[in-house]
């Protein structure tokens, strides 16, 4: 696959270029990397890389729909992840390094790292299977989608989700705003992700 040529750094540049160069305000971009399970032969999409931009009203909508218990849980997970990355023991809750509340979209992006899609499951899997972009705009449409990930996205404040198949995987874009399908962004994603070499940038 051409994506075998993408290393982590060029993936990050590509995702960043999509988000920062877009006319629309996208909250995040994720590259789901395609592979085949050697044991079962099943097609698998798993986390390749992601770029989180956040949304302009992150600060105003810190809590979103989350409860105090949700926040406590999210902060504890972030403390543990910080510790895992740094190698230092996690700080006690009262000397918290993660004192800012974890927004719904931050949390959705974070839990995405642990997700995968088998044999065309989910919106990313569907896009890969059909080799065409899947675009869902509107909270109501996401909430009623036949896809757990789309419903989860809506529950965490995402209003628009687009999945665009590219060489070796699928690029997923999410926004807290309402963005209708446009060919410009899908074309841009395809161009950025099918150049197929590590010459980028």
């Amino acid at each position: 696959s051409s994506t075998a040529c993408f290393n982590q750094e060029t993936l990050q540049y590509r995702l960043q270029a999509v988000i920062e160069g877009a006319r629309e305000s996208w909250t995040y971009a994720i590259f789901w990397q395609s592979s085949v399970d050697a044991a079962t032969g099943a097609s698998l999409l798993a986390w390749g890389d992601g770029y989180y931009r956040g949304c302009d009203d992150d600060k105003r909508k810190l809590r979103g729909a989350s409860t105090a218990a949700d926040q406590e849980h999210r902060k504890r997970v972030l403390r543990e992840l910080n510790s895992l990355i740094s190698g230092a023991p996690p700080p006690a809750a009262d000397e918290d390094a993660v004192d800012e509340e974890v927004t719904d979209t931050e949390w959705f992006f974070l839990v995405s790292m642990a997700q995968s899609f088998v044999d065309g499951a989910g919106l990313p899997g569907h896009a890969l299977l059909t080799a065409s972009a899947a675009w869902v705009a509107g909270a109501d449409r996401l909430a009623s989608a036949a896809c757990e990930r789309a419903r989860q996205a809506q529950a965490f404040g995402i209003q628009t989700m687009a999945c665009i198949p590219v060489g070796g995987g699928v690029v997923e874009l999410g926004s807290t705003g309402l963005i209708y399908h446009n060919a410009e962004i899908t074309g841009k994603v395809r161009a950025l992700f099918t150049s197929g070499t590590d010459a980028f940038p």
Partner: peptide
């Protein structure tokens, strides 16, 4: 959990670092 795949670990590290920067910046408050 102690053995994250490298792609996830790098993504996670980047996300956590950027998050710290984002919330540290007084101009964004």
């Amino acid at each position: 959990e102690g053995d994250l795949p490298i792609a996830r670990k790098k993504s996670l590290q980047r996300f956590l670092e950027k998050r710290k920067e984002r919330y540290r910046s007084p101009t964004e408050l």
